[in-house]
Amino acid sequence: MGTSRFQSSLAKKFIMAFAGLFLITFLFVHLGINILVLLPDTDWFNIAANFMASNLIIKVFEVVLFGGFIIHIIYGLVLQIQNWWARPHRYKVEGWSHKSPFSKFMIHTAIIILIFLIIHLINFYFRSKFGEMGEVTINGNHYHDMAALVLARFKLIEYVIGYIIAFIILGFHLHHGFQSAFQSLGLNHYKYTPIINKVRTLISIILPLGFIIIPLAVYFGNY
């Protein structure tokens, strides 16, 4: 298998689309765990968060996940740079005939998501791995008190606003990305593509909304 197998424009798109869909499934799992922080008893969230940080299978999965992000990001950037090169002289009058509304702004939404991702990793992920953490004892076992960390952050208005903006932007990214991934994988069908197009709207609303509810509830509720 020559290197060209992965260098072709179509292969890059295939890999990117695959990684993108994988990241979407991960976001649903992530949301499922995050929602637990809103339960009256934060033990559930702490147990889940610590399980995600320590279970061996999850650890393997974590490598796959990081790989997924890195592949998606690197391929996304490479494709974008090639695309800019493909039109060195731009039009005086910009064209607006694209049919997928957010398709023109994928790189812009992507960069905002990337910035969010970096801040997010510094605040929560690296902190729980390497930083100072409070501890809780649940049924005699010691756990990192992730819940306290999350709740404290979401009492700060700048975090709440930043978080909300990031997820609205992610919604835009996914509105194009979800259906685009199927097309990139060659899956366009007169019967199923209209369904995918309905699901894309659903996903791009439900997923960000799910994440956004959490800081809003923490900020305005009794947490």
């Binding site: 424009s9 890059k12 798109k13 494709l79 090639q82 695309n83 090169w85 493909a86 039109r87 064209g95 005939s97 694209h98 049919k99 997928s100 398709s103 023109k104 994928m106 194009h176 259906q179 685009s180 097309q183 990139s184």
Partner: peptide
């Protein structure tokens, strides 16, 4: 040197 499709459908 053509660009890559990003499914804008323009």
């Amino acid at each position: 040197g053509f660009g890559n499709c990003t499914n804008t459908y323009a």
